[in-house]
Nucleic acid binder design. Structure first.
Length: 566
RNA sequence: UGGCGCGUGGCCCAACGGUAAGGCACCUGACUCUGGAUCAGGGGAUUUCAGGUUCGAAUCCUGACGCGCCAGCCA
């Protein structure tokens, strides 16, 4: 069950208002929704919006939400996707209880209803080819033409349909069509196809069938069978609603579901098209469906995004009917908000620079007490070893610091977090001028990180004892696409791929406590951002993925070129 | 030129005839042992446009314009 951000059922989005009104008017006793993925790919953040909507409504109204796979096209669907989808929905925090369903569970009933339609003169077997059907369909502005088989005797259609099921005909030779109106302005009503012949093994029903219902014929009836009261889908199905209703009205279904449509999610710097995601995976642009750069649920999980942050994001963006593009920044905000509250703080140095504290006793090791999470005192403290030689971040030192650079510089004193104040006395370089190490001194009176005389350095740095540091690989991630609107204006989508979306750092060093971060946990590397162990990580070779950076005023100033080198 | 939808600050979204709310982003200040977080404040909207109804319109009506979706035996 989720901890959805509370929304007043009376004053939520337009769908919640409809549900609330239906409940109030007694049109439904129990609210039943469903999340209906086709198992032909992995779930992405757009699906998360739908999942949160459907399960959220069911939870809020004390109803239930089914997980139903729309598995009516065996040529594209796979068990792998079914398994991954179940795992992703569960990870997001939702529970379908006993209600795991498949459209394929209803194939027999659906077939029987198709036969009913034929008997009623409302459907017929058409011998036209796919091309001929298209030619007969007409265009957006011209009506279609009736198929020559439209008036074929009911008995003949019945016989042919039975033989289609029996496997007597090859793919594409015949279809079952509804008999509605070839001149309907809504093209979906121009005798839509109900059944097609597909000789292919189905992940669930194997080769029990060689005729499969289309989405239009399967979806609403599946809803009706399950007692779904509110069938919520995205806008592109709006035009299908008259057909959805037509089936419900012309078939002896056990309940009367209603379809409602909302705008699907679009995100800047992101592509949410299964077709494109599939290509990114198949063409090797990413490490797989769960690549940390992918907008898939599994990718976000591997990246270290908390499920709660994704739920919060869904609540934040709302539900409406106008097409819109949400800034990824909102997703990031939602994730940071959760992570700031919950992530344990740790020290890690991505690009190490050696600091020798000349006046610190050689061989001495002090266990410094460091807060695990200043936002959450209950997270407690940990001990971090401090010695004469420590690593700091190379970018935390500048030999000739510009005006607004507050960190370490020659002669300047800074705080090593929860340890000591140190002052840079000397910069040691090699023949090429590359900085090898910094020679510093410390103030013993500042042990623990604060000075008795109350002086306060402008900067606090994270650090790692040289003798205790553990090597780690760190993978830095940026947007997969370098433009907010990938592929817009006719550009090739793949030309918009960000060449720097992944940067692998091999020389990072982390504090000992980072050796055993459990999989699935995201921690904060102080001052750097949030990181999570990658599945590739082993005790012998630590690997961390950067989930997000922290908000960084200095970086922003630099990017704006607002600092001068004075 | 057919049908179905949709147009509210940079972005998302509310307002249900009574005079534009909130979030994200942005800017400023305070505070700070993370240049993080937090707190306080700020800028920014003649609600696509034009008519009409009304004492009063983002809300209702008409028209225009713009955008999205539909001509799979995909979902």
């Amino acid at each position: 069950m989720s901890i959805q951000t509370p929304t007043s059922p009376e004053r939520g989005d337009f769908i919640r208002e409809i549900v609330a009104a239906d409940v109030r008017a007694g049109r439904t006793e129990t609210v039943v929704t469903r999340f209906p993925p086709e198992p032909n790919g992995y779930l992405h953040i757009g699906h998360a919006k739908s999942i949160c909507l459907n399960f959220g409504i069911a939870n809020e109204f004390g109803g239930r939400c089914h997980l139903r796979f729309d598995d009516t096209n065996p040529e594209k669907e796979e068990q792998e996707f079914i398994d991954a989808i179940e795992a992703d929905v569960r990870w997001l925090g939702f529970d379908w209880g006993e209600h795991l369903h498949f459209a394929s569970d209803y194939f027999e009933q659906l077939y029987a209803w198709a036969v009913d339609l034929v008997r009623a003169g409302l459907a017929y077997v058409d011998d036209l080819s796919a091309d001929e059907i298209r030619e007969h369909r007409g265009t957006l502005t011209e009506p279609g033409m009736n198929s020559p088989w439209r008036e074929r005797p009911i008995e003949e259609s019945l016989d042919l349909f039975a033989r289609m099921r029996a496997g007597e005909f090859p793919n594409g030779t015949r279809v079952l069509r509804a008999r509605i109106d070839m001149a309907a302005p809504n093209i979906n009503l121009r005798d839509p196809v109900l059944y097609r012949i597909v000789h292919a093994a189905h992940p669930r029903t194997g080769d029990a069938w060689c005729v499969y219902p289309t989405y239009d014929f399967a979806h609403g009836q599946s809803d009706a069978i399950e007692g779904v009261t509110h069938s919520i889908c995205t806008l592109e199905f709006e035009i299908h609603r008259p057909l959805y209703d037509w089936f419900i009205e012309n078939l002896p279904v056990p309940s009367r579901p209603r379809q409602y449509e909302f705008a699907r999610l679009y995100l800047t710097y992101t592509v949410l098209s299964k077709r494109v995601l599939l290509r990114l995976v198949n063409e090797g642009h990413v490490r797989g469906w769960d690549d940390p750069r992918m907008p898939t649920i599994s990718g976000l999980r591997r990246r270290g995004f908390p499920a709660e942050g994704i739920r919060d994001f869904a609540a934040m963006i709302g539900v409406a009917k106008s097409d819109s593009v949400v800034e990824v920044g909102m997703l990031e905000h939602a994730a940071r908000d959760v992570l700031n509250r919950t992530a344990a703080r740790r020290f890690a140095v991505l690009d190490p620079l050696r600091v020798v504290i000349e006046d610190y006793p050689e061989g001495q090791v002090e266990e410094m007490e460091v807060a695990n999470n200043p936002e959450d005192p209950s997270a407690g403290m940990r001990k971090v070893p401090f010695t004469r030689e420590v690593w700091i971040e190379r970018e935390d030192f500048m030999e000739e610091p510009p005006a607004k650079f507050f960190r370490l510089a020659p002669g300047r004193e800074v705080r090593l977090r929860s340890a000591y104040f140190v002052t840079c006395r000397e910069v040691v370089k090699d023949a090429a001028g590359e900085i090898l190490e910094l020679r510093c001194t410390h103030d013993p009176a500042t042990r623990g990180g604060s000075a008795p005389d109350g002086r306060r350095p402008k900067a606090t740095l994270h650090w790692i004892s040289a003798g205790h540091a553990m090597p780690a690989e760190v993978r830095l991630y940026d947007y997969l696409f370098s433009r907010p609107d990938p592929g817009a204006d006719g550009r090739d989508l793949f030309a918009d791929l960000n060449p720097d979306s992944e940067t692998v750092l091999q020389g990072a060093l982390v504090e000992p406590a980072l050796a055993d971060v459990p999989a699935g946990e995201t921690v904060q590397f102080e001052r750097l951002g949030y990181f999570t162990p990658d599945p590739d990580s082993t005790s012998g070779h630590l690997v961390f993925n950067r989930t997000l950076t922290l908000r960084d005023t200095w970086a922003r100033l630099q990017a704006q070129g607002r600092h001068d080198t004075a």
